[in-house]
Design a protein around this nucleic acid. Sequence first.
RNA 1: UCCUGAGUAGCUCAAUGGCAGAGCAUUCGGCUGUUAACCGAAGGGUUGUAGGUUCGAGUCCUACCUCAGGAGCCA
Length: 448
Amino acid sequence: METAGTTSAPLATIASLAQHDGQTVTLRGWLYNLRSSGKLLFPTFRDGTGTIQGIVPKAAVPEALFNTLKELQLESSLMVTGKVRADARAPSGFELDVESLEVISAVSADQPFPITLKEHGVDFLMEHRHLWVRTPRQSAILRVRATIMRAAAEYFDTNGFIRTDPPILTPNACEGTSELFEMDYFDNDKAYLTQSGQLYIEATALALGKVYSFGPTFRAEKSKTRRHLTEFWMIEPEIAFAGLDDLLELAENFLSHIVARVLESHRGDLTVIGRDATKLEAIKAPFPRISYDEAHAMLEDAFSKGLIETQHKAGDDFGSPDETYISSQFDRPVMVHRYPAAIKAFYMQPDPADPTRALCVDVLAPEGYGEIIGGSQRVDSYDLLKRRIEEHNLPLAAFEWYLDLRRYGSVPHAGFGMGIERVVAWICGLDHVRETIPFARTLNRIYP
RNA sequence: UCCUGAGUAGCUCAAUGGCAGAGCAUUCGGCUGUUAACCGAAGGGUUGUAGGUUCGAGUCCUACCUCAGGAGCCA
């Protein structure tokens, strides 16, 4: 440890410096950047709450302080003491007149911090994700992510939902379609990482009324797009005695709450990220609701006007370009409901008004971010559910416990799942979900 | 799995089939208000791998590897 001067002032964080104008404080953090102009040094410090520029005139500080700082490599850890001073030239409005500096761990010039302030490629940044998270933009995104996760849980916690987390190790495919990560489960069994807790929280919903789960989800799909991770976080509410309309109302209030919380406490972070906050200010319930058939008609119209390249076939699911077009027609998330039952999961309740349609909803985020929520009212009839399982060629024995939920006091119930990373990408205006989670797991990357 | 594109200095990128280059980073020097500071200098290369065409290949051809983002699939 190398000391240049003494550090004995009260501790402060960079985010709180406005409250310390004129006072001498000590910051604990890292050297983020260092500029010099002859006998003036301009170090920028970061401490996880923000960055601030210090100023070190050679004539006004001990020689040891000036020389130590001058040779310090970026990302060296340190304690710095100085006087907080409002200055119109500083981006944050404040600067630090450095009085003393204690180097905690100096970075070697032989191996300088690899991430510079210049541009880097995706491969390099992902290979150095453990260091990339130190940069202001990435830190800001992770702070917003934390608020989104907290606001999501908070919404359910304060609206009568009980958190009941389903198992992560499961014995079989929940939906029987997606690719699963498989592993040995002791001697003679296989286990799979969960791809949705939905079936399990249907059980807890019939026990506790309103429940939700919040945890990681795994999909071994070979998807290579800006919207996919193999490991992502999903929050899923499930409600007994509820139908599709209840679900739509829940979804719009839920999302509005999350966006409001982010706007409440992350204006600065959104600026660092480069997100236009006015786009988010429009996100207030109610959200537009359109049926699958109305969405199809929109696509037909767009195709005839040459606004989209491929024609949507009635009855087919929407592709990514379709979803992008539909969502681009609205300034807030659009809720598309009543898809054809044939292209949806076996557990979705048919619409009594038209049994070829399912009582389901996809919520598409604006600005081309695509599906952030998928949900449905669940089949509550034992006979229908059993028939659906058979029609989908799923192993009946594995679903006996699920059928029990219809044998013993079945009620109409509904729920949805929301992918946290897609919501973070949308709210932050990012072009890829890999920046929304501390360590993204994708098809071609599991390091670091 | 399919389609498309990219691999050159630590990083970001140039280089008509004809001497391997720049900016940043690092080192040295200069500058008292810099905001990805700037100015001067130095060091730094198995051009993804293996073949092939050619007098000559970073450049053209073949195969492979890695990565990217789009389709499909999904949140």
